[in-house]
Simulated assay, not measured.
Amino acid sequence: MATQGESKRLSFSDRHIDAQWINQCGEFPVHERCIIVNVAASPIFVESDAPSIIRPWTSTVLQHALLRNADSLIVLRILESTNIGGVVLGPKWEWFGDREPSFPRDIPLYVSSQDPVGSVTIDPRRLAGMSPSESLAIPFDVKVNLWYCPGNTDCVIHTGHKFLEVHTQIFGTGRMQKFHENDEHSLYEDVIMGPGLTHHTFAAISGDGSWKYPWHRYYGDTDCIWLAVELHAQTS
């Protein structure tokens, strides 16, 4: 049982995937195998024979461990992998083209409902591994949702996000890819995504804290489910 804090079951949980938001817990014991995603601005400490940390905006796979300084984290477990593609038939999912009318109608990309999971005040450069400055820290609302695609799905090259994001692979194997142009032949970085991996943000963050995204896409090698962690700058 977590000490202090609270636990909230996320809206897209179902019989296939259990997803919990753990907030403001001094200690959190991990019993069963699961993916832990740190969505706080501070590290989580893993107590074990060889103590380690889960840095902000990263993840790992754990079991039989004790977490300390668990300020804000997502816990995900695959409960049933048989017919896992059936998640998209649930009431919390929709085909992405129903949300974005311009999306190509022949691409089987599905998105779940989105949940708020607190807020943070950080210098955006922290997500890119750059040295942060308190003077550039701004408040963000943090939101999470799941995505699904079957194997060999091109989820479309795109750019122009107004928010910052990272993705954590939950099921299957996929790729986060960068391109010089809106052309798959201009690929220049190919990040292989296996369960439990979170990639660094793809945004190019300037010295003043502003950001710009390159052309990029997700590509599903197998049937894939991944978590999107989005940071939306608060507006006054």
Rank of each mutant, 00 (worst) to 15 (best):
M1W: 10
T3G: 06
T3I: 13
Q4F: 04
Q4D: 13
G5Q: 09
E6I: 00
S7K: 11
K8A: 02
S11M: 03
S11F: 04
D14E: 03
D14F: 04
Q20S: 00
Q20E: 14
W21Y: 15
I22E: 06
G26I: 07
E27C: 05
F28W: 10
C34E: 11
I35C: 06
N38R: 04
A40I: 08
P43R: 01
P43E: 08
V46P: 05
E47A: 11
S48F: 11
S48D: 15
A50T: 13
A50Y: 09
A50M: 11
I53V: 15
I54E: 03
T58D: 07
S59E: 01
Q63S: 15
A65Q: 15
R68W: 08
N69A: 13
A70S: 14
D71R: 14
S72E: 09
L73S: 05
I78G: 11
I78N: 11
L79Y: 09
E80A: 13
S81N: 12
S81W: 07
N83T: 09
I84G: 02
G86D: 15
L89Q: 13
P91Q: 12
P91L: 01
E94N: 01
F96H: 05
R99G: 00
E100V: 07
S102E: 06
F103G: 02
P104K: 02
P104S: 00
R105W: 00
D106H: 08
P108C: 02
Y110W: 10
S112F: 02
S112A: 10
D115I: 02
D115E: 08
V117N: 04
G118H: 14
S119H: 15
T121G: 10
T121D: 12
R125D: 04
A128F: 08
S133R: 13
L136K: 13
F140M: 11
V144L: 07
Y148P: 00
V156P: 00
I157T: 05
G160V: 00
H161E: 07
F163Q: 12
H167R: 06
Q169N: 00
F171V: 08
F171M: 06
G174V: 09
K178P: 06
E181M: 04
D183W: 07
L187R: 15
Y188A: 06
Y188T: 13
E189R: 14
E189Q: 13
V191Q: 14
M193N: 10
M193Y: 10
G194R: 15
P195W: 10
G196Y: 04
L197C: 08
L197G: 03
T198D: 03
H200K: 12
T201M: 06
F202L: 14
A203Y: 12
A204W: 10
A204N: 13
S206K: 14
D208W: 07
S210I: 07
W211Q: 08
P214L: 01
H216N: 08
R217I: 04
G220N: 11
D223A: 15
C224A: 08
L227V: 01
A228S: 11
V229S: 06
T235Q: 15
S236R: 12
